[in-house]
Amino acid sequence: MARKVAIIASNGSLFDAYKVFNVATAAAASDSEVAIFFTFEGLNLIHKEGHKQLPIPEGKEHYEEGFKNSNVPSIPDLVEMAKELDVKLIGCQMTMDVMGLEKEHFVDGIDVGGAVTFLDFAENADVTLTF
């Protein structure tokens, strides 16, 4: 049985996006079954426009150059890759309701669900991570 990795993404900066998508794509490429639950600011990471211009945390702007120099993939690229590798992206319904967002405000191919949808997957996960 494939290893299962469950990730909760609840923060919305560029750094958070890299933490989430790097681990998710690496795990998926290692034949793990991966699901990410995006909640609160974490929804930025899959917002159609938002995920293309995620903010760098205040005072850390100087990292921008480092990102360029190390040739790290862009967040939109990582999102595409995650989808290609069958990573399950779950948007939190309750947060979306609070923020007045609909499924079409997000990148294509996401699922929308409540906490139980994620818990159902996480119940027998081998690795659970929160970012």
Binding site: S30, V72, P73, L85
Partner: peptide, 13 residues
């Protein structure tokens, strides 16, 4: 070459 983590692994896969 020139690719950062996790790209080498993703490409290897």
């Amino acid at each position: 070459k020139g690719l950062a983590c996790p790209m080498p692994i993703v490409k290897t896969k």
